[in-house]
Design a protein around this nucleic acid. Structure first.
Length: 420
RNA sequence: GGUGGAGUGGCUGAGUGGUUGAAAGCGGCGGUCUUGAAAACCGUUGUACCGCAAGGUACCGUGGGUUCAAAUCCUACCUCCACCGCCA
């Protein structure tokens, strides 16, 4: 959520920034509601002040045996005025916070301006080699080796669900342990959170109110299936004031992710690439505002570490303003080349949200002296399994139609060196 | 799911419908003392909003209600604890 003071003091900046994000904010309405709100508060507070003063008089009068009926009469009217103003204030507050909750975060100054085509390749790691044989896309090699079954997924759940079998299922489990071990040894605390959360949590990280249609909702209990581990893990500290020496807080969590993917269809939806349920290891950080951009670089490095350990070539992309997600100030994507879809695939997205989520969650920290301040939050995939598994199936494919197990992963596969 | 009990400041814990933002203790912070520390003693110690300021307002699980006035009464909901039922 944007700071209302920021909107009040820099309305043009907010208008421009939201336009760059292709999500223009109705700044004028916000300002109008804001000034109405303040006027009503001033009026109501004055009446309340009067009521409090008179209330203090009543017991004294009673003690002195003086009549109080006339005061009751007047205070009844004052009370009615107050509740009228309070009702109106509630309406305005609701409307105002509705607008504010739908306003996107402001891009950081270092973010390139433009649409997707303005994304910048920051660096590349490893080199994409073209093997002499024709690499089969993961859905073909996976099906032929009996480790991936898309038909079964469609049967038991529907289109957009997959089933891993045998060494495929083991591979996924191995990757989860492998990645969590890396993060844990680098100081991340492992978290096993709920996979279903309430609306307050979804609002806290910014999925609600705008992205409701992209998520699965359980009507009966008014709960949401998490679209990413970011939601439960970041919300761990909702409505809290942390001691400053607890920062930075670093978490890593394995969770499934559920996404409705309404309207998604096309070439890159084949196989495991765009599905309704996938597994992911997510990293989350809560940090001091002064260090959040340094932490962002570190977090990108942490995600890279996994790909490097697996020896899979990738590139790091700095997203342009128009490609940034709703809550992000700055985002790097890690992409790797997929022979299957002949395209770069996003395998990780690492973002700094500054205080945008913290403000929604009311997550603050206190330094030894001074007022509580909002923390900055970051998160990044480390990594998404439904992209990583295809990457391994395609990058580690052999000419005779088998899949080698990356060396670092072999201990996690009980020593297995090849599938097939 | 059923029955009973409870939800007050960082924690423990008082609180009669009317200067109670809230006693007391612990903890925290600052100080005195000390070579240093501990102990002792003194002081201080919630958050948000409105306001240029002075100052004002709100908050005692959450929402609604009664009242001139609610931490205190009523009501619904939420959470926690205990027991019963069910269960991986």
């Amino acid at each position: 959520m944007l700071d209302i003071r920021l909107v009040r003091e820099n309305p043009e900046m907010v208008k421009e920034a939201s336009t760059l994000k292709r999500d223009p904010v109705d700044v004028d309405s916000i300002l109008e509601l804001d000034s109405q709100r303040r006027a009503i508060i001033a009026e109501a507070d004055e009446l309340k002040s009067e009521r409090n003063a008179v209330s203090a008089e009543i017991p004294k009068r009673k003690k002195a045996g003086e009549p109080v009926e006339d005061i009751f009469e007047r205070m009844r009217e004052v009370g009615e005025s107050i509740s009228g103003l309070d009702d109106k204030l509630r309406e305005i507050d609701e409307e105002l916070s509705g607008l504010l909750l739908k306003a996107p975060n402001i891009p950081h100054e270092s973010v390139p301006v433009g649409d997707e085509s303005a994304n910048q390749v920051v660096r590349e790691w490893g080199k994409v080699t073209k093997p002499e044989f024709e690499v089969k896309p993961h859905w073909e090699i996976g099906e032929s080796l009996g480790v991936l079954d898309l038909t079964a997924g469609a049967k038991i759940s529907g289109s957009g669900f997959y089933v891993l079998k045998g060494a495929g299922a083991r591979l996924q489990r191995a990757l989860i342990s492998f990645m969590l071990d890396i993060h844990a040894s680098d100081g991340f605390t492992e978290i096993a959170p709920p996979f279903v959360v309430n609306s307050a949590s979804m609002t806290g990280t910014g999925q609600l109110p705008k992205l409701a249609d992209d998520m699965y909702h359980i009507d009966k209990d008014d709960l949401w299936l998490i679209p990413t581990g970011e939601v439960p893990v970041t919300n761990l500290h909702r409505e809290e004031i942390l001691a400053s020496d607890t920062l930075p807080v670093s978490y890593a969590a394995y969770t499934p992710c559920f996404r409705r993917e309404a309207g998604a269809a096309g070439k890159d939806t084949r196989g495991m690439i765009r599905v309704h349920q996938f597994d992911k290891v997510e990293m989350v950080k809560l940090v001091h505002p002064d260090s959040s951009y340094d932490e962002l670089e570190v977090l990108v490095g942490q995600a890279e570490k996994v790909l490097q350990a697996l020896e899979i070539p990738y590139r790091v992309l700095l997203l342009a303003t128009g490609d940034l997600s709703f809550a992000a100030s700055k985002t790097y994507d890690l992409e790797l080349w997929s022979a299957g879809v002949a395209n770069w695939l996003e395998i990780s997205s690492i973002s700094n949200f500054e205080d945008f989520q913290a403000r929604r969650m009311n997550t603050r920290f206190r330094e030894t002296k001074g007022k509580p301040q909002f923390v900055h939050t970051l998160n990044g995939s480390g990594l998404a399994l439904a992209r990583l598994i295809p990457a391994i199936m395609e990058n580690y494919q052999t000419a005779d139609g088998k899949i080698n197990i990356p060396k670092a992963l072999q201990p996690y596969m009980g020593g297995m060196i090849q599938i097939g």
